[in-house]
């Protein structure tokens, strides 16, 4: 079976993982199409890393089925590994080997023909701006440089599917932008990408997004569709004393969420609550405020999705 024959590169059914008493991943149903940059968004401990590790055969699921690139896991993990690239959350190449030595090691491990290995290594060193550091030990690189090296290592053998576990957690904003450019470049070249993150701006760039909360899939769609389908509407409240206004609004009917953004408040209210009604409510309490509608953001979606579940289980 080849990758081009499958529209779906990852499919899971009822995927669960239990560590002792904790259910880290809870009956996950996932379908990732070929060529997508698919995002995993979730707070720490939501099961992102555990899911990724199960998808590349590092962990065995407690229950459920996994099919990656047409290979069933965990049985066919070894065959899958030749077509899979995995970038771990913390830097996992050898710190006491140089940049070039690390890549040479990986090329040999993946059994790239020697001539090709050399060409590929030079191309990756150039592409990820690592030529200057060729002879530097990996342990002495900066966060951004290390991350570029890790990406080069993960794509060295031209995988059909690339799994990245919070790849940008230790790098500066500029490096993050560059990194995402590289991901889109890889996707354009036909690599399917599954990336976990807890940055909203990164999640928004994904072609499709799954929101995880305590092991469960609570939302799964394109970022645009998720924002359009946001239950309730966001409002901006400009007010003299935001902290007092916040206390006032928190108990109000129809107000789902209150957060302070700088000197203003951002509300998420029920669909039938109008800006005028909120302004009137504040006026009654002797607080003058300017209330205007706002565009929904992914953060609204995220908060709403994870909150709904919390209320349901509470």
């Amino acid at each position: 079976m080849t990758a081009s024959a499958e529209p779906t590169v990852i499919r899971t059914r009822g995927l669960s993982k239990r560590f002792g008493d904790t259910l880290a991943v809870d009956s996950l149903e996932l379908a990732v199409a070929r060529g997508e940059v698919y995002g995993f968004l979730g707070p720490n401990g939501s099961g992102k890393s555990t899911t990724l590790r199960m998808l590349c055969g590092l962990l065995r699921p407690s229950a459920g089925e996994i099919e990656v690139l047409g290979h069933r896991l965990p049985g066919e993990a070894e065959a899958l590994k030749r077509r899979l690239g995995y970038m771990t959350q913390s830097f996992s190449l050898y710190r006491d080997l140089s940049v070039a030595e690390n890549l040479a090691f990986l090329a040999a491990v993946h059994e790239l023909p020697r001539r090709e290995a050399h060409k590929r290594r030079e191309a990756l060193l150039a592409r990820y701006r690592l030529e200057r550091f060729r002879h530097r030990l990996a342990g002495t690189l900066s966060g951004g440089e290390r991350q570029r090296l890790a990406l080069a290592g993960a794509v060295l053998h031209r995988p059909d599917l690339l799994l990245l576990d919070e790849p940008t957690s230790a790098v500066d904003p500029q490096s993050r932008r560059d990194f995402w450019e590289s991901l889109f470049e890889l996707a354009d070249a036909g690599t399917s990408v599954l990336v976990s993150t807890h940055y909203m701006d990164e999640a928004e760039r994904c072609t499709r997004l799954a929101i995880l909360d305590r092991g469960r899939l609570v939302a799964d769609d394109t970022p645009r569709a998720l924002m359009a389908a946001l239950p309730g509407r966001p409002l901006r409240v400009e007010v003299e004393r935001p902290r007092a206004a916040r206390r006032l609004l928190e108990g109000t009917r129809g107000v789902r969420e209150v957060a302070q953004i700088g000197a203003a408040l951002r509300l998420l209210v029920d669909d039938d609550a109008s800006p005028e009604a909120i302004a009137a409510r504040l006026h009654e309490a002797g607080v003058e405020a300017r209330v205007t509608p706002e565009a929904p953001t992914l953060e609204d979606v995220f908060v709403a999705a994870t909150r709904r579940r919390r209320e349901a289980t509470a």
Binding site: L58, L84, Y86, S92, L106, V109, E111
Partner: peptide, 13 residues
């Protein structure tokens, strides 16, 4: 302990 194993497991080694 250094986490290299996690990377190695995902390779054909």
């Amino acid at each position: 302990e250094n986490g290299n194993l996690e990377m190695l497991i995902a390779t054909p080694v």
